[in-house]
Design a protein around this nucleic acid. Structure first.
Length: 756
DNA sequence: AATTGTGTAGTTTTT
DNA sequence: CTACACAATT
């Protein structure tokens, strides 16, 4: 078969590779995803059953994109595309008992994990005060990523001269793990650890899965840790058709246990590996790649690799300096408005990247001020809010009555007279008797030392919980509504003296109900509690980003990996921020190199324009600090910036003020025209600018602050956009009548009537 | 047991 | 600046 014209020789080589181990070293923008999806299609073409192909990614977003591209090439094909964590969760549900769990186990998210760990540490009643739970948590996580059990750490405990931190870690780890099993719960790292242990200890299961997953493809291989490596290796014994793709220069998860060495190990562990290098970059201009190249050669711990492109020189990389963070945000906002106003760019062409989430606040505020449609891949995460966590904890406890973390969270929320002491007694009773927590509550009369009132409250709680079952309503939405009603969780939040916070909380609750309804809908009568719960804990902030939203994207450098934008702006090119101060502490070369790779990743996201900024003064934890230019700046070998960095703003005030006014006016006029036409859908700002008709097809583009009309409720204002995407995206509207409602955007009868 | 107030320390990146 | 721990009060 001849090489198709749309592939380079190397790409074709990778696509055509049939059996045996394959390592694809793919530089940024080298068409890696395209190669993987094409190869999958090619495998099927050669007669491989799609059910025997497993493609693993790190993020939901990447999985979703890959699945879409595969189904575009082969409509209706059954290739399994999943993230490591989701894949492991689904396998563990099947083989739970073999690792000491039940199939309805709870997956604890980061914050649940921390509070669980704190509890365990306090139970140890030892002088662990010197070590923060966060530190211990990261040590335990590291151990799990390396497949080390508490026993493996034991030597450190027994050695009196050993590091006290190591000793403490080993001790806490042992109890933590024991308690997790008792709570029928796992943390994120356990999903990988349990899976790896399962495969290691049960050869017959390993063989079965190895046989089933004849072809395994792993994306972003440089980010795998030992646990992940062992899992995919276990699937590649019988048929060593493992295909790993990655780029050592884009390894940015060392702090999470990722081992670049896995790429080097690969060729050793899989003899006869064919290696393909994709070095041709189809994404960026020469100017951008020039900067990326000059930066990355400063890493000593690296194999040489040149970035080649046939693209043009393009605009020079810009470096702008501002007085402070506000001026920086303002300057970028004005720049974007000017570009869009001049018809050179659409909003969705822009992305603003930053090292830490805390920098997003000001950037977002500037976007709101300039009425720039934008989306953020984080902010105050919806699923982190107390009211959401509480309600999910009810569902968790219903689903898994051993869930200690959920029990502690809601047994006395809303307050029902079951305080700390009572809780501890109940938990101890359940441990001693070997029964679940709700059963222990039912038996409260048998617990010694429990007051009459406490006993009564506990039994009442148990009785209430026993009335909750998914089978009643068949839908998660129905069950959730029942929980809210019976617990009176939202009591008083909607009456006349409800505070602003109450109203806000209520709208969050409504959004959760809407997302439960969307879940019920998406699984079409196959609702399961753990399905919904898994969905809510394994979603990432990144999943908020909708590439078709027609908005500016705000995201961290980490979450930008794998994405691309025509114009990329990276803020805060300052020492202690990028590189982050933690990497500079002990002059840790490896960590500084990871920071450099992080900037490399950010730079190589840009297709045609790259703008780097720095603020002379920046507020760090409340106090203003004078900044030092990033050590990476001179390494980039930048030329002169086109627009000299004028203090305060890189643009002339008058021209951009006019541009902004024109921008607002135009938006108003076109929105007015749109609503006059009775078109029920809102167009994106970008499509309004272009006058493009197609954009009418995207119905979910409401924005916070927008005025809307509902046939029943009348006029109102959008107060919040949900976290879902597509049919799961929700809108919360505060109506003039005082009512606040949440809708699934695609299905609602809401009509936009103006902005602000 | 629960609420309120006061002080303190701690702050990267994500599944 | 804010989330959290702890203390004092009802």
């Amino acid at each position: 078969m001849g090489k198709p014209g749309d592939l380079t020789g190397e790409q074709w080589q990778a696509v055509e590779h049939f059996s045996g181990p394959l390592l694809v070293l793919a530089g940024p923008g080298s068409g890696k995803t395209r190669v993987i999806t094409r190869r999958i299609a090619r495998l099927v073409e050669r007669g491989v059953d799609p059910r025997n192909i497993l493609a693993i990614t790190f993020t939901n977003k990447a999985a979703k994109e890959m699945a879409e591209r595969v189904s575009r090439l082969m409509p209706g094909s059954r290739v399994w595309v999943s993230t490591f964590h989701r894949f492991c969760a689904s396998q563990l549900r099947r083989y739970a008992e073999l690792v000491g769990l039940q199939s309805n186990f709870t997956i604890l998210d980061q914050s649940d994990q921390t509070s669980f760990l704190k509890q365990v540490m306090s139970e140890l009643e030892q002088d662990l005060g010197r070590f923060s739970p966060g530190l211990i948590a990261s040590k335990i996580g590291r151990a799990k990523n390396r497949l080390l059990t508490p026993e493996d750490l034991r030597p450190a405990v027994e050695d009196n001269y050993g590091d006290p931190l190591e000793a403490a870690t080993a001790k806490v780890y042992a109890l933590y793990q024991k308690e997790l099993l008792r709570a029928n719960s796992v943390d994120f790292d356990d999903l990988l650890l349990h899976m790896a242990v399962l495969l290691r200890e049960h050869e017959e299961i390993r063989e079965r899965l190895d046989y089933r997953f004849e072809y395994v493809l792993v994306d972003e291989f440089q980010d795998t840790n030992i646990a992940q490596y062992e899992i995919v290796r276990a699937f590649s014994v019988l048929n060593p058709n493992l295909c790993a793709t990655g780029d050592p220069d884009q390894s940015i998860y060392g702090w999470r246990g990722a081992e670049i060495e896995n790429i080097l190990r690969f060729e050793r562990d899989f003899p006869g590996t064919q290696q393909v290098r994709l070095e041709m970059n189809f994404r960026s201009t020469q100017s951008i790649l020039h900067a990326a190249d000059h930066l990355i050669v400063h890493n000593t711990y690296r194999k040489h690799k040149q970035l080649l492109t046939n693209n043009g020189l393009g605009k020079p990389v810009q470096y702008w300096e501002f007085e402070d963070a506000d001026a920086e945000a303002e300057g970028l906002a004005r720049f974007m408005v000017e570009e869009v106003e001049a018809g050179r760019r659409a909003w969705s062409d822009f992305a603003i990247l930053y090292r830490v989430n805390s920098l997003s606040r000001r950037l977002e505020r500037a976007c709101v001020r300039y009425r720039i449609p934008h989306q953020i891949a984080s902010g105050v995460a919806f699923y982190e809010r107390a009211e959401i966590k509480d309600l999910l904890a009810y569902l968790r406890l219903i689903n898994n009555p051993h869930d200690i973390a959920a029990f502690r969270r809601i047994v006395n929320t809303p307050v029902r007279g079951i305080g700390k002491q009572t809780q501890n007694k109940i938990m101890r009773w359940s441990a001693v008797e070997g029964i679940d927590l709700l059963e222990a509550c039912t038996q409260a009369n048998r617990i010694t030392g429990l007051g009459k009132k406490a006993m009564f409250s506990a039994q009442l709680f148990a009785r209430m919980m026993s009335e909750f079952a998914l089978s009643d309503t068949g839908s998660v939405e129905g069950l959730l509504r029942k929980v809210i009603e019976k617990t009176r969780y939202t009591y008083g939040w909607d009456n006349t003296h409800a505070s602003e916070d109450d109203v806000h909380r209520l709208s969050n609750v409504n959004e959760l109900i809407a997302s439960a309804a969307a879940y019920d809908h998406s699984v079409d009568g196959e609702s399961s509690l753990e399905g919904f719960l898994e969905e809510s804990t394994l979603v990432a902030d990144l999943d908020n980003l909708d590439p078709l939203s027609g908005k500016v994207s705000l995201l961290t450098l980490h979450s930008a990996k794998g994405l691309e934008f025509p114009v990329v702006m990276i803020v805060g090119l300052e020492q202690n921020l990028l590189p982050h101060e933690r990497s500079l502490r002990e002059n840790n070369r490896r960590e500084v190199e990871e920071e450099r790779r992080l900037l490399f990743v950010g730079i190589t996201r840009a297709k045609s324009e790259l703008i780097l900024t720095r603020a002379f003064r920046r507020d760090l934890r409340g106090k203003p600090e004078t900044s030092i230019p990033s050590m990476f700046l001179p390494e980039l070998a930048l030329g002169q910036s086109e627009t000299p960095p004028v203090a305060g703003t890189p643009l002339s005030n008058t021209s951009s003020d006019e541009a902004i006014e024109r921008h607002k006016l135009k938006l108003r006029e076109q929105l007015a025209a749109l609503t006059a036409n009775k078109k029920p859908l809102l167009m994106t700002g970008a499509s309004l600018m272009n006058g493009s008709k197609e954009a009418v097809a995207f119905p979910t583009n409401f924005a916070v602050g927008m005025r809307v009309r509902h046939p029943q409720q009348g006029y109102g204002q959008v107060t919040e956009m949900g976290t879902g995407i597509g049919s799961r995206r929700t809108v919360t509207v505060q109506f003039e009548s005082g009512v606040s409602e949440t809708y699934v955007a695609q299905k609602s009868a809401l009509q936009p009537v103006g902005i602000g």
